[in-house]
Design a protein around this nucleic acid. Structure first.
Lengths: 188, 188, 188, 188
DNA sequence: AATGAATGAGCATTCATTCAT
DNA sequence: TATGAATGAATGCTCATTCAT
């Protein structure tokens, strides 16, 4: 029964991602989400207190999945430079294959109240910390030039973002960009 | 008379920027814009055919101003590396001082039809070309390492975007990022 | 349940007839209809897709009721001349007692698109055919002079219309008109 | 100058007839009328106090023209039966060639206040009186059977109306109807 | 718990009318 | 007198949310 609840909630969130991605927050209709989820309209309100609440939950869930995928990918590599490289690649790949979702996530910040804004800043800070640690480790191992780790983390995040936008836009960049960035970071 | 028309239209667009920035497209109400512009509700429809038309006009106008400011700033510098540096600085400064506007512009891409999407891609392509030319010139002058100019342009745009988001978020990055990027591009 | 739906739809159409009759199509407000029907504004849109759709449905329903009443009245008489006489009488009676409804129905033809226009022509043709058959039967039975049945049907419809307008206007004609018409049709 | 005023007013009423005929009262826009009349929007309010006032004036003017044409046609004939015959013919012809105008006049009665309703009843009464006199004269001359003149007038008006609707609908009746009516009225 | 019929707040847009020029 | 830019009242329709079943 707890299973049922859980799976039903997930079905709704999945449908929400689909519908919000296609129409954006305001144009998406609760009824469409309920139909896509295969539940009644009222049922959604058993799991989420409002449309906005559902959007928040979906956004948070989506982002956390996204970050988790990136993390797991990174952990498979040993050398820091390879980690950065697969980070870029996977990021681009995900953005390409989920361009609609990526777009609605980018949109998600506006008009959704300070609570979300703060949550987003927190998530961003987490990612920056991870990247910072990655750079610091690279420096310690001698794989990267001794730059300011915080600033390098910003640079990496920026490129991640750019590649996401590029993927979203349907552009097919190869990995030369990451090479250039790494060149700026590598020793010598 | 042409002046009056013109100034009234500008007043409306200015008010639109303000209101759209605060609430986003859907939550913004025409009546609020008209009040802020100091005109009647109906007057807006003398200059713009719909809420969406007004939003589009405001977005295009805002972006063109933004790009024009960046261009004029760049032209004041002589060396390519300095141009890139002021480009980053000005971009960050503008994003910081117009964070609300920057946010609505970033949001602007979603859900506004293919016409806008195409216009945006066109603008993006223009900017990329300019950056590409900048890099090419830098390479010719020996100021930059002989990288693929197109890819370098992508990198630069990405950093511009990132800095804009950083500025938008109220973060106060210094210019170390641009230094790192430039290190990745500089000869040797 | 089907009952509930049905009765609610009927309540709305009844209220629509009342309100449209009082103010005409454009001046009638959906909110007034919903109030008179005792339902919420939105409920109307569960049963009818637009104000115009509601008007059409009401018009068609009203006309069909009207025609049905006339038909049932006619069928109670045996002789053709008596049928024509009760046709005129009932028509005048209905127009008198439903003058507002009659007016909005007469108005209904204007500005409602070709679909309605075609529907109306079809209804008119049906009525003309019935009248034509009535005249033909009268001729065969020797009750009427051998006139062109089609043209006689036109004449009868014309008088029906006139009497309807007269009834609508509150005038109280007696049946002398039908006598005159019948005189024009009777043998010899 | 008085001429100018007069001709300008006529131009506006002519344009009003055209535009009201095409769209009906509510859907017609003052601006379209002013454009078609070749005057400024405000100018209309120098001659008419409101849209409704203009509609009234146009309706009255149109009906009076209509009646005047019918009268002049009738006066050209000598025998009563021929007068009735040309009355039917001209009426049908006018309705055919001015079907749009005929339609808006038929529509005109609804929702325009009691003042118009009264005016219309008065006009109708005038026409009925004329027809009544015509019938009376026909009886005195022995051209018509000694029927109740008032009731015969009703019959004639009814046929006029029917023929008008038929003409409006684009139907092409010949004059058999008038023959039938006359048969009902002729002596013996 | 699940449903979906019912609800009504909310808003873009139109257009008759005014009035400064 | 003529104009048309400016105005804002008025209303059809949508859709998030509720609640009786």
């Amino acid at each position: 029964m707890g299973e049922d609840r859980s799976s039903r909630k997930e079905a709704i969130m999945k449908a929400a991602l689909s519908v919000f991605s296609q129409h954006g927050f305001h144009a998406a209709r609760i009824e469409d989400i309920s139909r896509e989820a295969g539940v009644g309209k009222g049922t959604i309100y058993q799991y989420f207190s409002s449309k906005e609440d559902l959007f928040r939950a979906m956004l948070i869930d989506g982002m956390e999945r996204y970050v988790r995928i990136l993390q797991s990918t990174v952990e498979e590599e040993d050398r820091v430079r390879d980690r950065i490289r697969v980070l870029f690649q996977t990021n681009l790949y995900l953005a390409r294959t989920n361009s609609r979702a990526a777009r609605v996530i980018l949109e998600g910040l506006t008009g959704l109240g300070d609570e979300m804004h703060d949550w987003f800043l927190g998530l961003r800070e987490n990612i920056l910390s991870s990247l910072e640690n990655l750079v610091r480790e690279g420096i310690e191992r001698g794989e990267l030039r001794p730059v300011n780790p915080r600033h390098a983390a910003y640079l990496l995040l920026g490129v991640l973002h750019t590649l996401a936008v590029a993927g979203m836009m349907g552009e097919t960049e190869d990995e030369t960009i990451s090479d250039m960035v790494l060149m700026g970071l590598e020793p010598r």
